[in-house]
């Protein structure tokens, strides 16, 4: 029975994702971004099937196991775009560092002003980097990995929902700049969104996500100091 539920979980996830992609390609809107659409659909299917998250978790473990090699695979876009990234290294790194600093300072300021508890601040510190790195950092520093994962996902989903139109309105049209912002602030989900805009934007975003992950990993002791 457990095996059947696991297979069922994986199948509905694959199906929801591919339907989500198809719908987004035809009707791009904040509410049809594949991850948002799939998440809502799968939760509804689970509820209708009388299953809870525990039933789903075996399927989840199998799918998320491949996040490890998927993160490693990011070295390929990084390598392929190394020349252009090296050529524009200073604008790219400046954008990433300023972007990360601004998003973290604003998040901490608002969270402290609204007196949100400490475990939320810990989660906020890693909200912009990709889940596998965020979870590892949180575990390394004794935080709550589930909370971190939730904030990372929420940031990614919100980012893919808000950012495309917002950057259009602000006249940020340069694919390189958009790619850096997507990867730096909205990690893997942003990278997936960037890849929908163009392969090049996606590759830049992939590289930016990887570098942002490395930057936060290296500077986390410093960030942790401000919590």
């Amino acid at each position: 029975m457990t095996v059947l539920i696991t297979i069922y979980s994986i199948l509905i996830t694959i199906l929801a994702y591919f339907i989500g992609r198809k719908i987004y390609a035809k009707h791009p809107s904040p509410f049809t971004t594949p991850v948002f659409f799939s998440t809502v659909t799968i939760i509804l299917i689970l509820l209708i099937s009388g299953l809870d998250f525990d039933d789903y978790s075996q399927g989840k473990d199998i799918i998320t196991y491949f996040l490890g090699p998927a993160t490693v695979a990011l070295a390929v876009p990084l390598y392929k775009n190394r020349k252009i990234i090296v050529k524009y290294a200073i604008p790219a790194i400046s954008g990433m560092i300023f972007g990360l600093m601004v998003t973290l300072i604003i998040a901490f300021t608002i969270a402290k002003a609204l007196s949100l508890p400490q475990f939320i601040l810990q989660g906020l510190a890693v909200k912009s980097i990709t889940v596998p790195i965020a979870v590892e950092i949180t575990e390394l520093y004794g935080g709550n990995a589930n909370i971190s994962a939730a904030f990372v996902i929420l940031t990614g989903v919100l980012g893919t929902m808000i950012a495309p139109k917002m950057m259009d309105k602000l006249n940020i049209t340069m694919p390189f700049a958009r790619g850096i912002a997507y990867g730096t602030i909205a990690h893997g989900l942003g990278t997936a969104q960037a890849a929908q805009e163009s392969e090049f934007t996606g590759a830049v975003a992939g590289a930016a996500m990887a570098i942002a992950g490395i930057l936060i990993s290296c500077f986390f002791p410093l960030i942790n100091h401000f919590l």
């Binding site: 400046s94 954008g95 604003i106 609204l114 906020l124 940020i172 602030i185």
Partner: peptide, 25 residues
């Protein structure tokens, strides 16, 4: 408070990152 924190910090992070790159290149 969470929605406010995540949303506002995200919007400014995006703008600053993209603008910096676009202006400097």
């Amino acid at each position: 408070p969470l929605a406010l924190t995540l949303g506002v910090s995200l919007i400014f992070g995006f703008i600053v990152a993209a603008w910096t790159v676009q202006k400097l290149s």
